[in-house]
Design a protein around this nucleic acid. Structure first.
Lengths: 217, 217, 217, 217
DNA sequence: GATGAATGAGGCTTCATTCAT
DNA sequence: CATGAATGAAGCCTCATTCAT
């Protein structure tokens, strides 16, 4: 929630005593910038977004951004980090919240719901990754590959369990399955419209399709 | 002046005998530019791609592009057009090639295969749309909305037939279904690697998942 | 953002004490740019003048100009505005300074002197109009037509008075007269050389020619 | 009339015998180019005019111009040459046509009429000089200075005669007089509209103003 | 903390010019 | 003679970035 949690290069200011007394103005600005940047990156891509646009959306002037970040690149880094981190955290929490005796399928249902809910509601950050990652310069992509892989492996674990338990078909290969499922889910950000559709209903429809396909019994 | 203004780079004209003698050099250059642009747009986005990059990939200098196109925008337009057009054509042909007595499901299977094959093999053009459309400036997006809708409606027709015939579950709503299915298919361009994977196998896996889901019988 | 958008480089602000502390640096740069542009436009025409030339003459780099103006066009607009405005103001003041009982001819003499003096001394701005107006793209020309017409009508008024009072010949038609007189005066910018000629003497000669022609009594 | 008369660098082709048998296509194109260029230069300035515009107006493609001329500069040179040459010729002829016993004033009237008529009717060429000369790069200006001076000196001769004969006032200095008179005449190209005004009437008005000024007797 | 002003690199585009056909 | 196609230099403009205030 606090973007600084994942920001490694914030100007030193942690010092001080326990309770964060001042909730300093800087943190607020930082968050505004990140949030503005996330929205703009998501809608216009990285190259298509201007520092001036970000600044304007964050209610400041372009030069001021450099007090908080050292480059446009760094903003992107933090936005991407925040994106995966939130998604991952939400999914992990949802799975952890399942009762100990939950089946693999139930855990996957929880994971799907959490993934979609994060993606489609608090979207700025989570949607950026999905939308623009493929078009980023390779070096930037590399910097975030490990976290993405971690997330992928987490899902692989969920699916493996379901296959080994016999809940899912044995002839399914895990990697393509994960790509297929996450792909279908991720794609919803391209068309889901919160004003006319219900997230819960969408989640419901998607899980049903994933689980049982389209064919009538 | 520009006879080809609306003709998005006809690919059929290379081989064959020597009958057509009209400005073959220009057409070749045009096609090279479009193809180069498509690849670059796909990989780096529209704003992330430089005219100089396009020119270099098409083996000419930036200024020369303007002999064939009047702006970067126009190149994008034609690339997008070509993308949908090819996809649409491939799918329509595949469906048309089905025997008259084919079931709705069989037609859908053919459509899926065609969509994926076009997307993943002759990809430059077809993949661009899918990848960058969401981040294009609204005015450009608008210009192509109608063709995309047409394609969507075509799929809706296929799905409707399957539902009405009872082959697909009756509780599925068509629009979300189409989004879900095409989303899952489209997403494969983000991760499919022709060097290590087989398209046919991928198609097979995907259709199975779509049709029957993940659960074991 | 740009408070001065419509204020064509107020010349009154340089001297004086230090009371006005608002963004004096920007205004200075703006004025430098306008002045440099005016000189260059006058000597090389609009198309013949480069933004880099303007920037160099204003002691900055080309890109910096865009902090003050949004386009080369806008610079031209302000230069043209300033030109007519100064000329008009000078002439109007000179006429207004005439004693109430001054004859129409005396007023015209004052107007001629003011027009020429402004044109030939503070020339950058005033001379631009005269020199390049005829070769400007029609749309730009249109934007300034109204102010020029206003100035023309003002002169027409002066001439009409002299004709009606019987001081000038009755057979003279006002519009061609104004064109002829202003033309003769304006043309002096094409050849007057302040280093070898005296403005006052030139004014004297011109008025005499206009009033009485070349023929000896 | 044949622009080639003044064209020093025309591709050699003069050879041959007496009568110019073929009136070759090339000459026609050359003239079309020059005429088109003159019009465009006059209306848009030198830098403001594109070779492609000239080519289009001359009904050919830009590249073709280089068969007839070696550069845009050369076209300008010939256009300028043609301008002064025609004007000079017309004026000289008109003066020469005066009866031997004509007064200096009569000669000047003839010269004025000829100058104006050439300027305002066959204008493309003659008007270019007047309009754009002041904004040309110094090197180009230099190349034409001598011919312009020659023309100026010719007028000076006419005026000197009138002053020495006592027809014109003795207190008039020749150079400024010539500038003033030609200036007033030249300026008419900026506003004369052949559709609504009569050249003869304009000439009449102008000569009257020049001769006797504006004041009533 | 933030801004105004500037910069330089680079983006898209235009244009005179060349040259094979 | 003329054109189609290309080029490189340069033009206008944008943008990330800097830095004094």
């Amino acid at each position: 929630m606090n973007a600084k949690a994942t920001a490694p290069s914030a100007p030193e200011r942690t010092g001080a005593a326990g309770a964060d007394r001042k909730a300093p103005k800087a943190d607020l600005s930082r968050d505004q910038i990140l949030s503005a940047a996330a929205k703009l990156f998501r809608d216009q891509g990285y190259s298509g977004t201007t520092l001036r646009q970000i600044a304007a959306a964050a209610q400041m002037k372009a030069g001021s951004i450099y007090y908080h970040f050292s480059s446009k690149d760094q903003i992107l880094d933090e936005v991407l980090d925040a994106g995966i981190a939130r998604n991952f955290a939400a999914v992990r929490e949802a799975v952890a919240a399942c009762p100990a005796e939950a089946t693999a399928e139930e855990r996957i249902l929880a994971a799907i719901a959490a993934h979609m809910r994060t993606l489609l509601s608090s979207s700025e950050f989570t949607a950026v990754d999905i939308r623009i990652f493929g078009q980023l310069p390779p070096e930037i992509r590399l910097r975030h590959q490990s976290k993405r892989s971690e997330y992928a492996r987490y899902w692989d674990g969920l699916f493996r369990a379901a296959i080994e338990s016999g809940e899912f078909r044995k002839d399914i290969k895990i990697a393509p399955l994960r790509q297929f499922v996450l792909g279908a889910l991720n794609w919803t950000v391209e068309w889901f419209d919160p004003d006319t559709q219900s997230i819960d209903e969408l989640i419901d429809r998607c899980t049903k399709l994933i689980m049982s396909g389209v064919k009538s019994a």
